[in-house]
Design a protein around this nucleic acid. Structure first.
Lengths: 190, 190
DNA sequence: TGAATTTCTTGAAGTAGTTCAAGATTTATA
DNA sequence: TATAAATCTTGAACTACTTCAAGAAATTCA
């Protein structure tokens, strides 16, 4: 439902009815099945994705062939590779649905046209991305200062529901330790 | 010099003479001496800093009492704690001059007023922060996939001049290993 | 439902890094 | 220019994790 997006925008800047109309006429909702990719490594990322339902992750495959999740996104999150999007360079990342999901996919030219028609969207995206950057800085802080067990407990306290929502091995890699070690943490064997 | 900032803005969106005038009349340049802080842990961050000359770092003090640098900023970079800035919550970070430096400091109310007078600044800050977020994602990728030595070599290849510019122990903590280990990497003793 | 797939667990062995302590070198300052 | 302060180096002991391998449990779907 578009409402998820309109509500999110209105957290930061109010929308007039005609602006909502423009958005409704320009956007579409796409269903994405679990495990389906919306971006693969090497592709140029030309789309921003707003998640209206479900869960996605951004991950890489390291040189041992193991997947490492860098970022999760759930309802009301934007997910994309901003560097590839802005610089038109091949992406380093995969973006994949973790659950059956629904997204609003906005292609770069459509976004540019919406930003011209509804300039206050610039403000919306500014604030969203500044907050995302702030969150990324906190993430780096946690990675730097906490032990594996502390990172797991901290995450579980902050996002108790989310821990149930994704496979343990994905969460382990997001927290930067191995799936096996996650098992041991949970079993209290560390 | 303001020119550093105007040039940076014009990389993303052109400025008209009257807009430059508004900026010139509303902004000021501050000199910050080496080691001086512009933000301390626990403070609410109400200012964005644009570096016109010199070098800053954002760091934390971990529970062993050691400083860990999360981010460096040099000429034409913005540095602030966006999370504290937006949510008006106490900052987790210190921001400190690494060299004698000059910055344009913009207080939150001044920024808000500038954004109203010059709406295209929303676009400027949107693009800058989206690119910063993209860079933070790449940083996390490197932290996840490379060994300490690889991270050092990669950084040195990307930013050969910068390696000379800051103390080794600061760079070591930025790359997430100990100062002693940095010594051993450089001596080829690993 | 049953077979296939995905996910989770466990222990043993290994290692990439840390920590500590002390001295050497470089840089800043009175 | 001498003294203090900051930064860098080195080796030895340690440890928080990884890797591997194999089986167990849970989930998916024909």
């Amino acid at each position: 439902m578009y409402k998820t997006l309109f509500d999110h925008i209105e957290k930061f800047t109010p929308l007039k009815p005609f602006e909502i109309e423009i958005l409704e006429s320009g956007l579409g909702i796409t269903k994405i099945k679990k495990k389906q990719h919306v971006l693969q490594e090497g592709q140029i990322c030309n789309t921003m994705y707003f998640i209206t339902k479900g869960c996605f992750r951004q991950y890489i495959i390291n040189n041992k062939g193991t997947e490492q999740t860098l970022q999760f996104g759930i309802e009301s999150w934007w997910i994309t590779d901003y560097l590839s999007f802005h610089n038109q360079t091949p992406s380093h990342f995969y973006i994949q649905a973790v659950e059956n999901s629904e997204i609003i996919a906005i292609e770069k030219p459509v976004l540019e046209s919406l930003l011209i028609q509804i300039p206050k969207l610039e403000r919306y995206f500014r604030i969203v991305s500044q907050k995302s950057f702030g969150a990324a800085q906190m993430r780096i802080k946690f990675l730097f200062t906490m032990s594996a067990e502390e990172r797991y407990n901290h995450f579980k306290n902050q996002q108790p529901d989310f821990v149930q929502r994704v496979p343990q091995y994905m969460l382990a890699s997001y927290l930067d330790f191995s799936a096996e070690f996650m098992s041991k943490i949970r079993a209290g064997k560390v």
